[in-house]
Design a protein around this nucleic acid. Structure first.
Lengths: 133, 133
DNA sequence: TCGGATCTTGACGTTTACGTAAAACGCAAC
DNA sequence: GTTGCGTTTTACGTAAACGTCAAGATCCGA
C-alpha cells in the first residue's frame, strides 16, 4: 500500500549520493527491507532520512542522530526511561536555543554590513544610480 | 593600553585547548604578536577567536571562517569588490535562515515530545505526584 | 641554582563522514 | 546473447579539526 523507494530514488529526492544512504544504513539510521539483495525503502525510511539530513544541517553527528532515533522509538515502550529522555530533550533545547541566538546575531551583523556596503556603493559613484537594489 | 592575553588565558576563557588556538593560527584565523617565541594575543585576536567559535557552532568550516575574516577586512579597502561581498552575505543569509527554520521545527518537536512525556509520567503512576515539574 | 610551570615547534594519530574504485550480480531491452 | 543500467559488497582513500606525545627553550620563586 505505502510507497516504496529504491536507493537512487531517495538519493535523487534529497540530493545525496547512494553512498551516503548506504553509510547511514551501516550507522544504523536506516533499515530498509530487501528484495533479494536490493534495498527497498519505506516511507518510514524516507522520513528518517529527512530527519537525519536536518539533524546534520544542525550540526548533529550521525551517532547523535542515531541515539535520538533510538530514544524516539524507545519512548513508545518504557515509561521508566522517560525522564532520561526528557533530560536529553532539555539538553538539545538548550543547544538549539544557543544556536538560535547565534543565528540572530549573525543575521543582524549581515544586515548591518549589507547596509554599509550598499551605502558605499551608492555614495562612491557619480552615476545616477538612485535605485537602491 | 589595551589588554593582552597568553595562550592559556584565551584557552581558559573560551573553554578550548591551546592546541586549538595554535591550530587556528596555523589556519590564518589569528595572528598574535610575539614576545620572543611566546604568543601575545590582543583584544582583536580575542574577538576573532570568539567569532570563530561562534562560526563553528553554526557549522562553518575554519576555511570559511577565514574567508569571512578576509572579506571583513577587505571590505574596508576596496569598494570594487563590495558586490562580491554582498553576494556572499546573501548566501550566508539564506543558509542561516534555513538553519533558523530547522531549529524552529526542532524546538517545536521537542516541546511536543516533552509534553507527551510529562503526560505519560503523570498518568502512569499512582503516586500523588501532582507537581508537574 | 634548581625544580616546576608555561611556552615553543614538530610530527604522527584519531575520528567523522563520506568519496572512490573494483568486481560481480540481476534484469530488461534490443 | 550481449549490452547496459542499477545494484551489491569490499575496501582503501581523504579532508577537516584537532589530540597527543616528544623534546627543548624560558622564566620565576625558594
Amino acid at each position: 500500500m505505502s510507497a516504496t523507494y529504491s536507493i537512487t530514488d531517495l538519493a535523487r529526492q534529497f540530493g545525496v549520493t547512494t553512498r551516503t544512504i548506504r553509510h547511514y544504513e551501516e550507522q544504523g539510521l536506516l533499515s530498509p527491507r530487501r528484495d533479494g539483495t536490493s534495498r527497498i525503502f519505506s516511507n518510514r525510511d524516507r522520513v528518517r532520512l529527512k530527519l537525519a539530513l536536518r539533524g546534520k544541517r544542525l550540526g548533529f553527528s550521525l551517532n547523535e542522530i542515531r541515539e535520538l532515533f533510538e530514544l524516539y522509538d524507545l519512548a513508545k515502550d518504557e515509561k521508566k526511561q522517560l525522564e532520561e529522555f526528557l533530560a536529553k530533550l532539555e539538553k538539545r533545547r538548550a543547544l538549539l536555543e544557543q544556536q538560535r541566538e547565534d543565528i540572530e546575531v549573525m543575521l543582524n551583523e549581515i544586515s548591518f554590513f549589507a547596509g554599509q556596503c550598499r551605502r558605499l556603493l551608492v555614495g562612491s559613484r557619480d552615476d545616477k544610480t538612485e535605485k537602491v537594489a
